[in-house]
């Protein structure tokens, strides 16, 4: 599971898509706060120096400048690590969204796998923050392919968007379905339980699903690359079938995808959801991150294959109680 520098990850998918978009949209501008290489903007800077706005280590001003560019009719992509953008400059972003400005926010280095930089660089709250803002669309690509496709699709929206990226590059998911904003991907069909995953946790869930199937369970695996708005129909259909769900995200457990999905289930209980559902929610629970290798961090915080397998057993026990 350790990082391999030859693999293209979701940062590369963004960096390549933004170059393609800039070739066709002269109004596209990119703002970054001294992290252009890390955020894979090197090529964009080289090809479009007049449309790259260097903001230095000044994220609050960066968001304000982006707002001004949007007021003047540009479509700004505002790029930095998520702990700085949108977390440090949330007030400026809030004003921009209140003003219906078409800002494209990109937060890098989310989750635990951010090298050994420690908690100051591990955004674990950004989805909760972003999804609480009215009108925003939030995407969490799992890999290079999703990131490339979703970047392009987010650009076509006239409303504010958030793209959540990771430092760690994992091999792309093997899947031939089209990647469409707002539509989930059913990566495996099953009937005993459903695993919902976004971002890098998708690959972990793929591995866990294989192992669970090997011991005789039938697991439905759904990738939710678009966290807001959620693909409610697929979620509900699957849960009506399996009656048990596990949600996994590289984020604080009690918010983000977990709580958004829980709301869908609670709202539809007795309506479109026809039975009681057993649930387990996975994430980083009531604690900040820390330095360490990716494998060690995922293991300690219960975000590896083994942890999913344990949760699968737990959720199936719950399901049994509900149905007994």
């Amino acid at each position: 599971m350790s990082s391999d520098s030859t693999i293209k990850g979701n940062r590369e998918g963004f960096g390549e898509a933004i170059v393609e978009l800039a070739k066709i949209d002269p109004n596209l501008v990119v703002l970054c706060g001294d992290l252009s290489d890390s955020m894979k903007l090197t090529e964009f800077k080289k090809l479009f120096p007049d449309r790259y706005v260097e903001c230095g280590v000044s994220e609050q001003n960066m968001m304000g400048v982006a707002s001004g560019l949007a007021l003047a009719g540009k479509t700004p992509w505002v790029v930095s690590y998520a702990v700085f953008n949108p977390e440090r400059n949330l007030d400026q972003l809030r004003t921009a969204i209140y003003s219906q400005l078409n800002l494209k926010i990109v937060g890098g280095h989310t989750g635990l796998a951010t090298g050994r930089y420690g908690s100051t660089h591990q955004a674990l709250e950004d989805l909760a923050i972003m999804c609480s803002l009215p009108t925003i669309t939030a995407a969490v690509p799992a890999d290079y392919k999703q990131s490339f496709a979703l970047t392009k699709q987010l650009h076509t929206l006239k409303t504010p968007t958030y793209l959540r990226l990771s430092r760690l590059a994992r091999p792309s998911i093997v899947d031939s379905q089209p990647i469409i904003l707002g539509q989930s991907l059913v990566l495996n069909k099953g009937k005993d339980l459903t695993i919902f995953a976004c971002g890098l946790m998708t690959q972990t869930a793929v591995e866990a699903t294989k192992e669970l199937e090997e011991i005789g369970l039938s697991v439905e695996l759904i990738n939710l690359h678009t966290v807001k708005p959620l693909d409610q129909r697929t979620i509900i259909e699957s849960l009506n079938k399996t009656g048990a769900g596990i949600v996994i995200q590289e984020h604080q457990t009690f918010s983000g995808l977990n709580s958004l999905l829980a709301q869908v289930v609670a709202n539809e209980a007795g309506q479109k959801i026809t039975k009681s559902i057993a649930f387990e929610f996975m994430g980083v629970t009531e604690i900040f991150g820390e330095s360490g290798s990716e494998d060690d961090l995922y293991h300690k915080h219960g975000l590896d294959k083994l942890a999913i397998i344990k949760k699968a057993k737990l959720v199936l026990e719950k399901k049994k109680k509900i149905n007994s």
Binding site: N61, G64, V65, S67, G68, L69, A70, L71, A72, T95
Partner: peptide
């Protein structure tokens, strides 16, 4: 915030 917004418009 207005100052940064103004800077963005000026840049555009």
């Amino acid at each position: 915030q207005g100052i940064s917004q103004a800077a963005g418009i000026a840049w555009a």
